[in-house]
Amino acid sequence: MRVMITIQHPGHVHFFRYPIVELRDRGHEVSVFARENDVAIDLLEAYDVDHEVLAGEPGSLVSLAAVQATYETRLLRRARRIDPDVIAAIGGVAAAHVSSVLRTKSVVFYDTEHATLIQRLGYPFADVICTPACYREEIGAKQVTYPGYHELAYLHPDRFEPDPAVLESAGLAPDDPFAVVRLSSWEASHDVGHGGFDDPNEVVDRLEDAGLAVLLSAEGEPPTALEDYQFSTPPDRIHDLLAYADVVLSEGATTAAEAAVLGTPAVYVNPLSLGYTRELDEEYGLLFEHDGEDRHVRGLERAVSIVDRSDDEWVQRRERLLDERIDVTNVVVRRIESIARAHGATESTPATNTG
């Protein structure tokens, strides 16, 4: 079967990395197309994923529409040539639009309830929309749910084992306690008007006072006073660091969830709660949401309090999560295959003469 996958964000590379390999191993033709965004292309190259770049990175939200239009136009041309059985994506605006024009099938994977612009542009044109069971919006007949999170497509222990060598590359000894701090750029369409920590400098100071080394990961340029805390580990090694950290503080939901499923307690400081961040907090106690006006203060207090708690506690909580949640790569592969198979059967069925 012929499968097209579109990549428009670094997180999409992680999510589709193993499904691409499995689909190709099962004999399917998989074509991967990408738009430049942060380190997305670097990750595709690091993971040795054959791909074609169709559009550059937008310089601002204003230019995003023009870049997206270019990407969709070029994707349509490739799709006409390939004649895919299914087009798969996260969010899936381009995939859903192109599949509608060609009358092929699309499957969209998504987990972000507050990204309403993407939903309005993509959902009406998609054939199947796959969401975690904790997704809080009802989409209708197109929706298929599964007991897992996007992050378990690439961080499930059947797929990922952290490499301790990353500690040396980050300037840490094996026994050094440390925290990873992730700052968002707040430039995504669904982030406009929101914010996380009031003062990143205070975050670093409090963590150092608690005896932790601090590794900073920032979208865009970090605050000038914190440039020395920015680490230079390759983007495909970030999950190794998250796995060995004592605590992760993040303004971004994805990084917080990645840490949580790895068994590292995560403090998520952001006014926007999601179905999966809420479940990881309330059901498994591996992620701690802090929103509201005092989110900065409460988030820091939570992070400092975590340092003195037993590692066994987080191991046990992760084991329970893994017992109840699945390897999401298996869901992705099965869903893509079933939709492609159904499309192929429809295409090969001769029309019935009812005259």
Score class of each variant (00 low, 15 high):
210 A>C: 11
228 D>W: 02
331 V>W: 03
255 T>D: 04
98 V>L: 10
293 E>Q: 08
214 V>I: 11
269 V>Q: 06
228 D>V: 04
333 V>F: 05
98 V>G: 03
256 A>V: 03
136 R>E: 14
230 Q>N: 09
192 V>F: 07
212 L>N: 01
19 P>N: 05
339 I>A: 05
103 R>K: 14
123 Y>P: 02
178 F>C: 01
105 K>S: 12
291 D>N: 14
333 V>T: 04
73 T>P: 00
191 D>S: 15
239 H>W: 05
150 H>S: 14
209 D>E: 15
205 D>S: 13
106 S>M: 06
210 A>M: 10
330 N>E: 15
74 R>M: 09
224 T>K: 15
129 I>F: 05
329 T>L: 11
83 D>C: 03
11 G>N: 11
76 L>P: 03
145 T>Y: 05
84 P>V: 08
257 A>E: 13
295 R>C: 05
126 A>H: 10
198 D>F: 01
77 R>T: 11
64 L>T: 03
88 A>G: 11
163 D>F: 00
309 R>I: 03
194 H>F: 12
303 A>T: 06
133 A>P: 00
228 D>Q: 13
298 R>F: 02
196 G>F: 01
210 A>I: 13
182 R>T: 04
115 A>P: 05
263 G>A: 10
90 I>T: 09
142 K>H: 09
325 R>Y: 09
295 R>F: 03
188 A>D: 15
88 A>Y: 04
141 A>G: 05
272 L>S: 11
65 A>Y: 08
282 E>R: 15
14 H>K: 03
103 R>N: 14
60 S>Y: 12
319 E>N: 13
25 D>Q: 15
60 S>A: 04
6 T>L: 10
323 D>I: 00
96 A>D: 09
85 D>Y: 07
3 V>K: 03
348 S>Q: 12
303 A>R: 01
350 P>E: 12
349 T>N: 09
140 G>W: 12
317 R>Y: 02
72 E>T: 15
268 Y>C: 09
172 L>C: 07
177 P>Q: 11
89 A>N: 11
29 E>D: 13
129 I>M: 06
258 E>G: 08
330 N>F: 06
263 G>C: 08
117 L>A: 12
216 L>S: 02
115 A>M: 00
311 D>H: 12
162 P>Y: 07
243 A>S: 12
238 I>V: 14
80 R>M: 15
339 I>L: 13
219 E>D: 14
226 L>K: 04
29 E>K: 11
272 L>A: 06
323 D>F: 00
169 S>M: 11
85 D>A: 15
352 T>C: 00
346 T>A: 13
150 H>C: 08
347 E>A: 14
196 G>N: 09
